[in-house]
Design a protein around this nucleic acid. Structure first.
Lengths: 369, 369
DNA sequence: GTGAAAGCGCTAACAG
DNA sequence: CTGTTAGCGCTTTCAC
């Protein structure tokens, strides 16, 4: 008993969109192959035939079963996305860019979060792999020494890093801003405003190579001006109130006049801690963030920050991955309108896209008292 | 030329995890069916055999192709998730609960955002349907008059609403807090603090049935105390600075002494606007938010808010969907530890889960001057 | 241009 | 307990 024939002959496919391509083909009086072609390569099919197939499909409220095509085509047209968390708006903004770009290009998405945890990174990537994603857009804790990235390379799975900035001479692909350079610029703006004693506040360094790179940028700026770079204050978690540590740092005669926080969420927390300590921002002390999340522009005073183009980072990461597939749809290759300042090095190099950053000053940054 | 045989006999499956179950079966000296069972129903297979299969799988770095099983099983074990945006932390927090609960139960996820746009809601849901998700967790603009929800009902696609609170006598399933009741409580707290002139600030009403329900709660509270409920101030967008409108509202002799904002993001914006107008919160004017996003506790003064258990809303929505499937894994049915205060009505009713809310007071709420 | 046939990788009767 | 067999819905040679 062949169920397929059964249902396509006697059993009417229910209205719920459960008709298969066989049903459509039959209703249109063509073969399965032609029906398929009418959807995927209409150019190969006579116009009238295409129309008949499309009509039949509408009639039966045919809904293509993507599971079938993805399996058969040996190409899932799916992109796996792994981000540390969505609760930091940076990544939520990035997701918007990813979703727009991928769906516009006809790709499906599968999202997982790693919570900055390497073990979970491994596990979640395995999950993506089992779903046979064609490639991935990833933000990992530490791109330079990531076992899971090495594994992906070994298996030949295409991926593009987002936010992680691939090493210049490495083989990895990435889309980010110039973390170190932009941080240097930000701190230079602090110095230009008159600050001399500047401290860095960061999340856990092990959880973010970006944080380390931004700290390097801070050192660059300090040294360029003959100032002493102080060690960073690494806070274990972004969300807890770290008033004590901030207080200890902010007290004393040689207290810093400005803080550079390696991300905006952290900066907002630090500003609150400072307020609780009775310090006014930016009157008593300045705070510069990093990320440029929309929320930063919403608070009062507006959060000064090194601004990343988050949705563009996501969109470009997708576009670059598509390019790696050799399939970059023309329409999505540069949706952002942002010029490509990629640097290419070596043979068969990793493609490193550096997107321009911005500087949002004023607000929480002012001249020292 | 049968490729399958070719590769399983002569061609060694490459190390990249491209071995198929056939390869594993062969390597283990069992049939395809037994290999499959060793993974899916090991209880049906002799222990030693299971072990041989598992060993062979490890040997070949076998990675099950979920596309194959999902297609064949006529059950994708995938849950489609549609949220308005992730850029409001409410939904990002909710996603965490969804991801944890779904993956723990062995389900895969597919996420899309609707941007509060009904047209996009339709389109994105169609996308999910084409992927043959078994069911969905959705937050829609307006659950009461949603064409797309009606369509889903008609097609018999199981879904559970998150945040949207299904009508008491309807057939829809939902997980949320009691929007109206909790808003009433929040406003009552304002009244208890001495406020009499309280205004509601909301996002676009059409984009959120929750906002309307929360406004009703405000009216309830005001009327219960013989106070006059004023119409809401509906702001078109959450992110723009609406200082002008807020300013107009906050000026004059009969200016409100407190604002109730229907979500936290909005509240943070309003507070900034107020500051820009030279008003101090809560000294000159109090602000109460709604959502209880983590960020609210981070700012100074802490944002007073009606607190929703966001990750639990997500986790419970998943659990309830699983229950609808008749498959709720025991371990995930009440991960949150929050008691189930569901109300059930009528025959074959929509199951409405109301999760307890909290009230975070102090901070931006104080007695009127 | 169109059709017939093979099969993507896997699960699930049905036999033994 | 294990193997044989028949497809899930679709794409894609290969013929005509």
């Amino acid at each position: 008993m062949k169920r397929t024939q059964d249902r396509s002959s006697s059993t009417a496919p229910d209205a719920a969109g459960n008709a298969t391509l066989v049903d459509v083909a039959q209703a249109a009086g063509v073969s399965l192959a032609t029906a398929s072609r009418a959807f995927n390569s209409p150019a190969l099919v006579r116009e009238g035939t295409v129309q008949r197939v499309l009509d039949a499909a509408r009639q039966l409220s045919f809904r293509p079963n993507l599971l079938g095509s993805k399996l058969r085509a040996q190409q899932s047209r799916m992109i796996g996305v792994m981000l540390p968390t969505l609760e930091n708006a940076v990544f939520a903004e990035c997701w918007r860019g990813i979703e727009d770009a991928a769906l516009a290009a006809g790709y499906s998405l599968m999202l997982v979060t790693s919570a900055y945890d390497p073990a979970r990174e491994r596990e979640r990537i395995e999950y993506l792999l089992r779903h046979r994603v064609d490639g991935m857009v990833l933000t990992v804790a530490d791109a330079a020494r990531s076992a899971v990235l090495d594994q992906l390379d070994a298996e030949g799975v295409p991926y593009v890093l987002a936010y992680n900035q691939a090493a210049a001479r490495g083989q990895r692909h990435s889309v980010s801003v110039d973390n170190r350079g932009s941080a240097r610029e930000g701190v230079q703006a602090l110095i230009a405003a008159g600050h001399r004693r500047i401290r860095v506040v960061s999340g856990a360094f092990i959880a973010s190579d970006r944080a380390r790179q931004r700290f390097e940028g801070y050192r660059d700026a300090m040294h360029a001006h003959g100032l002493e770079a102080a060690p960073p204050l690494c806070l274990p978690t972004h969300t807890a109130s770290n008033a004590d540590q901030i207080g200890a740092l902010a007290a004393g005669p040689d207290a810093p006049t400005a803080f550079f926080c390696t991300n905006d969420l952290l900066a907002i927390g630090v500003i609150s801690d400072l307020k609780r300590l009775g310090l006014r921002v930016p009157r008593d002390i300045s705070v510069l963030g990093y990320d440029g999340i929309a929320l930063g522009a919403l608070v009062e005073p507006p959060l000064a920050s090194v601004v990343q183009p988050n949705p563009e980072i996501g969109a470009r990461a997708v576009a670059q991955l598509l390019a790696r597939f050799g399939l970059a749809a023309a329409g999505v290759s540069n949706v952002s309108g942002i010029p490509d300042v990629s640097r290419v090095s070596g043979a068969r190099p990793g493609r490193i896209t550096l997107l321009p950053h911005g500087l949002r000053l004023g607000g929480t940054v002012a001249a020292p008292a």
